[in-house]
Every structure is written in structure tokens, then in C-alpha cells.
Simulated scan of single mutants.
Amino acid sequence: MAHNVRGVISRAKGEPVELTTVVVPDPGPGEALVAVRSCGVCHTDLHYREGGINDEFPFLLGHEAAGVVEAVGEDVTGVAPGDFVILNWRAVCGECRACRRGRPWYCFATHNATQPMTLEDGTPLSPALGIGAFAEKTLVAAGQCTKVDPAASPAAAGLLGCGVMAGIGAAINTGNVGRGDSVAVIGCGGVGSAAVAGARLAGAAKVIAVDMDDRKLQWARGLGATHTVNARTDDVVKSVQALTDGNGADVVIEAVGRPETYEQAFYARDLAGTVVLVGVPTPDMRIDLPLLDVFGRGGALKSSWYGDCLPERDFPMLIDLYRQGRLDLDAFVSETIGLGDVEEAFAKMGRGEVLRSVVEF
């Protein structure tokens, strides 16, 4: 039996989002029906609305979510009705060359539900990142459900489904930040602030937050930054070097996704240091660096996709740290809103007024 629920869609490029009825089918083999409890408003959803991901409109937006499994299809054993889960967009296949080599966080064949969710007239919807959680219920592949402690706040837990995990993972998994390291994070929105928290969690001795907005720098301090640099008034490279005995940081995390900030990250690292790109660039962007500098500085230039996370490993661990008071996920929740408030949440995000607006059901 299909379920008619309220959901937020993007019908055409650049148009305001629309609250409408979404038809969600019962789960088929390998699928799970999830009653959504919360969903963060992520910049990726805005990218979908603006046509920056692809042109497969209409989109069912929302992907940074937590909820409760209502039903599962045949052959599903990992989750069951009643389980509290965080939704993820990396349901690993277990069979591709990355999975076979023991690196499932690089899985090249992640999968989603096969049945479409639709509008009432039968028009199929493209769910954001294969999830589509700006809806009262959503249909996903069972592997996209990661069971966690149900005592966790849904609004906080759901943020691990994308931005917060991307930032924490960029520091811990991709950057391999270790005890005593110096770390600089360029760009302190939701992902960058999470990278700050991840660096502190990993034991970094010095965490330098870089942004052009003093409000974001203050948020970063609350999440563990030991120093801040306002890029509007200060030279980023020289400032980071001055704070690291003239050397540069051991790890620099670029959470903006622009050529000029990547160049800052490249030169703000120590010799043999690591640069991690977690900010998402657009297809037209290019970087021009002297190849001799790439060779002569050594170290590593890395990209971080979803924080190189493995949801079944990382989500429960981070929720445990949250429950122990060692990871303040609540600090990322700037406000809770209703489904009808998503368009205004996009505007607040664009003005830099929030780390995350979170839809609660």
C-alpha cells in the first residue's frame, strides 16, 4: 500500500521549493520505509534546487536525516521495524574492487532504493543523494539505514548523515590528525566547524579556524578552535605560519571549495604536511600551482568524500561520544523548523546566520 505524505520538492531550476503530497511505496526487496524524525537543511539541497548537481527535476530534497524504520522488504536483516537510524548516502555494495580490497569507504557501487517515490500524478521524483528526507516518510535501500542509540536527539543525530560527518571525517579519517598536531581549517560553516570539532576530538594541540565572518569564527571557538584568523583583514598564509612557529600547520582542511582558498591551504601547511579538500568546487573551477612547489613541499594533497566514512563504523561511535558529552552535536543545531520553512532556511544559510536549520517532524 502506498503512503501519501507531505514533502518538499524542487520542481524547476531556481524556483522556490514547494510543499506538496509525495507518494511513497511500501518497501520492496532490500528496501526500508523510514518515518523521518528530523532532517538538516544542507547546502547540497540548495545545489539541487539551483541545478548544480544535475537536471533531473523534480527533486525530493533533504538527506541529512534520522528516523525510525517502519517496515522492511524481503531479504533485509540489518535493520528492523522500530530501529532508530541515521540515513546515509553510502550503502556499500561489498563486491566492488574497493570493497574487496577492504576499503569500503571508497565503494564505487553504492546503491539506493529501486522503487521511485512520486507525485500524485505519477511523476517520479529524484531523491536528493538517494534519500529524499524532507518528507514525513521516505523509501531507501536498507543499507542506507545505520542503527544508533535511540536516546540521541534526532535533530543532532541526523546531522551525521552528511555535513557533520564530512567535516569530522575530513580531520580524523582523511587528514589522519593525531595527538599534538597543528591544524588549520579554512571555511567555518557547518562542514568546517565539524572539522574543527574533529581535530580537537583527535587530540590536535592547536586548531586554527579561518573565515571571513566573525560570527562563524566564534562558533568555531565554541567547538574547539584555539585560534582564529579573519581572512577579510588578515593574510591567511602568514597568519597560520605565525601561529605555528613560522612552519605552517601539519594538516590544513579546505572547507570552502574555491581555487583561492585551496591555494591558501597549500601554502599554509608545513613541509611534508597534508592538505584535505572537503569543500565542494563547481565544474568550471581550476587550480594553477607551480609543479616545483608541489614536488618540493612533499606531503599529501587529499580529497575527502563524505569524510571517508564508513557509516556502520563511524555513526554509532560518534553517537556514543555525543552521549558521553565528548562531542557536542547539539551545538550544530542553530534552529528547528517545520517543513514549510525550508525556503527561508536556505536564505538564512546564504546569509551565514545558521550552522544548521533542522526540520523536525
Rank of each mutant, 00 (worst) to 15 (best):
D181R: 04
A155E: 14
Y306D: 00
P58Q: 10
V280F: 07
A157M: 05
R221S: 08
Q115H: 14
C107L: 11
R297L: 04
T226M: 01
T114A: 15
M117I: 14
G298H: 00
A80W: 00
P29V: 06
G187W: 03
L291P: 02
M165S: 15
G30D: 02
T282L: 12
P29E: 14
T282C: 01
A113E: 10
V358R: 03
D288L: 06
E56L: 13
R356C: 06
P316W: 04
L355K: 01
D314T: 10
C99R: 09
D293F: 04
G189T: 01
G51F: 07
C107R: 12
M349K: 04
V191N: 01
N176G: 06
G340Q: 11
A199C: 09
A199F: 09
R326V: 00
L318T: 07
E56G: 11
P283S: 01
S38K: 11
N112D: 15
H63T: 03
A300R: 12
W105T: 14
G130V: 05
H111I: 08
G158H: 08
H227A: 10
R215E: 01
P127A: 14
S357Y: 03
V140C: 09
L19W: 07
V237S: 04
G28W: 04
F57W: 10
D83E: 12
S304L: 05
G78K: 13
H47R: 15
V276S: 01
D270L: 05
S38C: 14
G189N: 04
L129D: 05
G246T: 10
C96F: 09
V278R: 01
H227P: 01
A109S: 15
I86C: 07
L217F: 05
I253M: 05
V22G: 00
A231E: 03
F361A: 10
G161C: 07
A32E: 08
G52D: 15
T274H: 06
G73V: 08
Y267L: 06
G62S: 05
H227V: 05
C99F: 06
D328N: 15
R323H: 10
V69G: 09
S126P: 02
V79R: 03
P104I: 11
G279Y: 08
V251D: 08
A66K: 08
H47L: 13
V276Q: 02
V36R: 11
W89V: 02
L119V: 08
V85T: 07
T44Y: 06
G350T: 06
Y262N: 09
D288A: 13
A249I: 11
A151F: 04
L139G: 12
A98R: 15
V358A: 04
C39P: 09
H227W: 02
P104L: 12
L139P: 12
S304W: 00
M317H: 14
R103L: 15
L329Q: 12
P104N: 10
P29T: 09
D234Q: 15
E136C: 10
R49N: 14
T118Y: 03
G175K: 14
A194F: 03
L355R: 02
N88C: 12
F295M: 13
V236P: 01
M212Q: 04
K302I: 02
F59G: 02
L243E: 04
V196G: 02
E15Q: 13
M117C: 13
H43N: 14
N176Y: 01
V229L: 07
